[in-house]
Design a protein around this nucleic acid. Structure first.
Length: 275
DNA sequence: CGATTCCCCTGATAGC
DNA sequence: TGCTATCAGGGGAATC
């Protein structure tokens, strides 16, 4: 499931291959993935533009195009963006293809059809409903221990629910939240305003560490995720709790437990992460 | 404000 | 073997 490290890895792989190329045509096989504008307008607005640079905001990938437009893409659960040769076998569930002026193409494939694309003027990126309400970038300067401390104190919700809230911190998802909580030795159902200063420090560092490790290992390929070259990541081999129910905790060897928190499967060590 | 549930959707898996 | 029910989950909407 593409979270911040996976989207960052996709961005970097596409950046390397696609920067400077022009879009010569667009194929849309499933128009509902195009949220804005309409499918025909989307095609004509993209065709002829060149790819100038890439960016990321939370779990959103940004492709900045010539003429002041940005293509905003969310991969949700099973979305893939892969740079391919038109001769390569076309995967099932390929919904959008951007033809490029070097004879290759960028394919958007998404089994569950949850992923979305939006084309908007770059200058109005900040007002786009998808991006407008996103919280801080956890790997940028604006994410400080002091910010986290004040926000945690203010919120009366469970820690896991808060960390998953994209309007609070942008980019964390189920995998990295569970990993960060384990690393910080905090129970996912702890109330956000119950953390003492040392615990705040622990979760602050843990969030950044798991995200950086995730990026350094090119993301977690738990099921569907691959980068822009179609390569899997490696972080699934380093996960300590996520999807490891019954496996021994790397710290204490007690079996990892699984519960539901805010409707999400939540993995934790009942010994290291006491309520 | 927060918690819960439903929805979108396909494919893997469990249970019978 | 083959069928069906359940589950997985990001995010948005609706409801309490």
């Amino acid at each position: 499931m593409p979270e911040l490290p996976e989207v960052e890895t996709v961005m970097r792989s596409l950046q390397k291959n696609l920067t400077g190329l022009a879009i010569t045509g667009v194929t849309i096989n499933l128009s509902k993935v195009i949220r804005l504008p309409g499918a025909e307008e989307f095609k004509s607005a993209l065709t002829g533009r060149s790819i100038e640079s890439f960016g990321r905001r939370g779990k959103y990938l940004l492709i900045h195009l010539s003429g002041g437009y940005t293509l905003v893409i969310h991969l949700r659960m099973t979305g893939r963006l892969v740079y391919a040769d038109p001769g390569d076998e076309l995967p099932r569930h390929t919904h959008v293809i951007l033809q490029l002026d070097n004879g290759r193409e960028l394919r958007f494939t998404d089994i569950r059809q949850f992923g979305r694309m939006i084309l908007i003027p770059t200058e109005s990126l900040g007002e786009a409903p998808e991006l407008r309400d996103l919280g801080r970038e956890p790997l940028e300067k604006g994410f400080t221990r002091d910010f986290l401390r004040k926000e945690l104190r203010r919120r009366r919700t469970r820690l896991k629910a808060l960390l998953l809230d994209q309007t609070f911190i942008a980019g964390l998802g189920n995998i990295y939240v569970d990993e960060a909580l384990h690393r910080a030795r905090l129970h996912p159902e702890r109330l956000a305003n119950s953390l003492n200063p040392r615990e705040v420090t622990r979760i602050f560092h843990a969030i950044q560490e798991v995200l950086e490790e995730g990026i350094n290992n090119r993301g977690t390929s738990f099921r569907d995720y691959v980068d822009g070259d179609g390569r899997s990541g490696n972080y699934q081999e380093l996960l300590r709790v996520y999807s490891r129910e019954g496996h021994p905790c790397p710290n204490c060897r007690k079996p990892i437990n699984r519960i539901k928190v805010s409707g999400r499967s939540t993995y934790f060590c009942p010994c290291c992460q006491k309520p």
